[in-house]
Measured scan of single mutants.
Amino acid sequence: MAEQVALSRTQVCGILREELFQGDAFHQSDTHIFIIMGASGDLAKKKIYPTIWWLFRDGLLPENTFIVGYARSRLTVADIRKQSEPFFKATPEEKLKLEDFFARNSYVAGQYDDAASYQRLNSHMNALHLGSQANRLFYLALPPTVYEAVTKNIHESCMSQIGWNRIIVEKPFGRDLQSSDRLSNHISSLFREDQIYRIDHYLGKEMVQNLMVLRFANRIFGPIWNRDNIACVILTFKEPFGTEGRGGYFDEFGIIRDVMQNHLLQMLCLVAMEKPASTNSDDVRDEKVKVLKCISEVQANNVVLGQYVGNPDGEGEATKGYLDDPTVPRGSTTATFAAVVLYVENERWDGVPFILRCGKALNERKAEVRLQFHDVAGDIFHQQCKRNELVIRVQPNEAVYTKMMTKKPGMFFNPEESELDLTYGNRYKNVKLPDAYERLILDVFCGSQMHFVRSDELREAWRIFTPLLHQIELEKPKPIPYIYGSRGPTEADELMKRVGFQYEGTYKWVNP
């Protein structure tokens, strides 16, 4: 592979701008107003304001973009700056750019259920340069409990009458099928589907988006991507930290609602779906819905739930269990780990287990898709061969690698495990991989909904998990304890083995 010439960040961002501006969906010269509902909250200060700053800094926003914060707290732009700027990672050389960014910011205080507050917000936006005809993007960085009041008031008082209007809704989209349907029906009564952007930030990850290209742009994968060759698929999300004093919020939802029903299920769809007619948003989402419709409700015998306990040999936070978090209700049975087996009941995947695993306070930070292939028929190497695996590593250190057998150097035919490896950090030294939120917010500006969740996708996802969630809430089974920093409950490994996964433990990928 030829040595790549190092590029400056300015040059890299210039390439990104060229890609972005050559499309006809990006209205570079139009006025846009980006409204952050819930501007005083954690999500706004840690993710949304920093993301908008990065896009502005790199010249990736339309030229005439204004940012308006809205929340109940009586704040000023200076207050917003004070709480969000520490997350910007701005350099001293960017000081003038930073001043320009905050000059485009404003803030309006108001209630979430008060019509007069929204009329005041609308008047404020109209007073901005060309504000009355601007395109408006409303980001709901809010708890779902206020979605209905907020969307109703936005629709009645704050819509642009000339430009387009788009609304970005953060997960969780309800707690179960019934609450999700209620919320979807409410929002759909106010906005068209092409105006609604239900954001799952995992769909903005580079390697998640790469799944489609790997599958449908490489001839070698087509013939082997089926039940005849693939023994099982494992989708993993692991965090090495616990709730760390923020367990009160987590306890309301648990690990299945927080990660599995959305992030992991979306990745499953991209692995299992048929080739779409095109890369058009609805063509892709149509195929994802077909996959979900082929999955039956989760069966309790295919589920393992766990909850982390303190590690007596650990240090600091590792010595504390979930129930030691003062914000967690006493005696909570909320799971911090889950392993679930699903089956896609169609011709391509009949009988292939899709194993979804996620948890907190585990032994490493990792998100990946792992396809394990069947054993080689007619073994001539005296059971020395391990199964081939194709691994798409989402985070950290984005990579695609194939675990395969090669001859060990020497005189004899002794096979050993090795890999074919594409590590993004080595291959793409001159490429700026956008943060997931950067990519998705740019998608909203461009009107691309491919990486957002459609209402029928959402409904099918909740259909699969709601009976299990209701059973857990009714019966309150005690989750299996696992030690902070471990791989999780051993019962999860036993479940995976029972459905056909072979864990060798003899080879570990190392970032080159």
Rank of each mutant, 00 (worst) to 15 (best):
A6V: 15
A6E: 15
L7Q: 15
L7D: 15
S8I: 11
S8D: 10
V12L: 15
C13S: 15
G14S: 15
L16I: 15
R17A: 15
E18A: 08
E18W: 07
E18P: 07
E19A: 15
L20M: 15
F21T: 13
F21L: 13
F21E: 14
F21P: 15
F21W: 12
G23L: 11
D24Q: 05
D24R: 12
A25M: 15
F26M: 12
F26D: 15
Q28C: 13
T31K: 15
T31M: 11
I33A: 08
F34V: 10
F34R: 02
I35L: 06
I35E: 03
I36F: 00
I36K: 04
I36T: 03
M37I: 14
G38D: 01
G38C: 03
A39T: 01
S40K: 04
G41F: 03
L43G: 03
L43W: 02
A44P: 01
K45A: 07
K46V: 01
K46A: 01
K46N: 03
I48Q: 00
I48V: 09
I48H: 03
Y49Q: 03
P50H: 04
T51W: 03
T51N: 13
T51K: 05
I52S: 04
I52Y: 06
W53K: 02
W53P: 02
W53N: 02
W54Q: 11
W54I: 10
L55P: 02
F56V: 04
R57N: 07
D58K: 09
G59C: 06
G59N: 12
L60P: 01
L60F: 12
L61Y: 05
L61A: 01
L61P: 00
P62S: 07
E63Q: 13
E63I: 12
F66V: 09
F66K: 11
F66E: 09
V68N: 02
G69I: 02
A71F: 00
S73D: 00
R74Y: 14
R74L: 14
R74T: 15
T76A: 10
V77N: 13
A78F: 12
A78S: 15
D79W: 05
D79Q: 14
R81T: 07
K82S: 10
Q83F: 11
S84Q: 10
S84H: 09
P86I: 08
P86G: 07
F88K: 00
K89T: 08
A90R: 07
A90Q: 08
P92G: 11
P92E: 10
K95F: 09
K95S: 11
L96S: 12
K97A: 09
K97E: 08
L98Q: 06
E99W: 04
F101H: 00
F101I: 03
F102Q: 05
A103Y: 09
A103W: 09
A103E: 15
N105Y: 08
S106T: 14
S106E: 09
Y107D: 03
Y107P: 02
V108N: 06
V108Y: 09
A109N: 15
A109Q: 12
Y112K: 00
A115Y: 11
A115V: 15
A115I: 15
Y118T: 08
R120P: 09
R120S: 13
N122D: 12
N122K: 13
N122L: 11
N122V: 11
S123G: 15
S123F: 14
H124S: 12
M125W: 00
A127V: 13
L130R: 14
L130D: 09
G131I: 08
Q133E: 13
A134D: 12
A134E: 14
N135V: 06
N135Q: 14
R136P: 01
R136Y: 15
F138H: 05
L140M: 14
A141K: 04
A141E: 01
P143S: 07
P143L: 02
P144F: 02
T145W: 02
T145D: 04
T145S: 12
V146C: 09
V146H: 04
Y147E: 03
E148L: 11
V150K: 00
V150W: 03
V150H: 04
K152I: 12
N153C: 12
N153E: 13
N153P: 04
I154R: 01
S157H: 12
C158M: 10
M159K: 14
M159R: 12
I162F: 15
G163Q: 09
G163R: 09
G163M: 11
W164A: 06
W164S: 07
R166Y: 00
I167F: 13
I167G: 01
I168N: 02
I168W: 02
E170V: 01
K171C: 02
F173D: 03
F173W: 09
R175G: 06
R175W: 04
D176E: 06
Q178G: 11
Q178E: 13
S179I: 03
S179H: 04
S179M: 05
D181S: 13
D181K: 06
L183I: 13
S184C: 11
S184Y: 08
S184H: 06
N185F: 10
N185Q: 14
H186M: 10
I187K: 01
I187F: 08
I187M: 12
S188F: 04
L190I: 13
F191C: 05
R192E: 09
E193D: 02
E193Q: 01
D194C: 09
I196Q: 06
I196V: 14
Y197K: 00
R198I: 04
I199L: 02
I199P: 00
H201Q: 04
H201T: 05
H201M: 02
Y202M: 00
Y202Q: 01
Y202W: 02
Y202L: 03
K205L: 02
K205M: 03
M207Y: 02
M207S: 01
M207E: 00
V208W: 03
V208S: 05
V208C: 14
N210T: 08
N210E: 05
N210F: 04
M212I: 08
R215S: 01
R215Q: 01
R215V: 02
F216L: 03
A217V: 05
A217H: 01
N218Q: 04
R219K: 08
I220V: 12
F221E: 00
F221L: 12
G222K: 10
G222R: 11
I224P: 06
I224T: 11
N226T: 08
N226E: 07
R227D: 05
D228A: 09
D228G: 08
I230K: 00
I230C: 06
C232K: 02
V233T: 00
I234C: 11
L235Y: 05
L235E: 02
F237M: 11
F237W: 10
E239T: 04
F241W: 09
F241L: 05
F241Y: 15
G242T: 05
G242K: 02
T243E: 03
T243A: 06
T243W: 02
E244A: 13
G245Q: 08
G248S: 05
G248N: 06
Y249R: 01
F250C: 01
G254M: 00
G254P: 03
I255H: 04
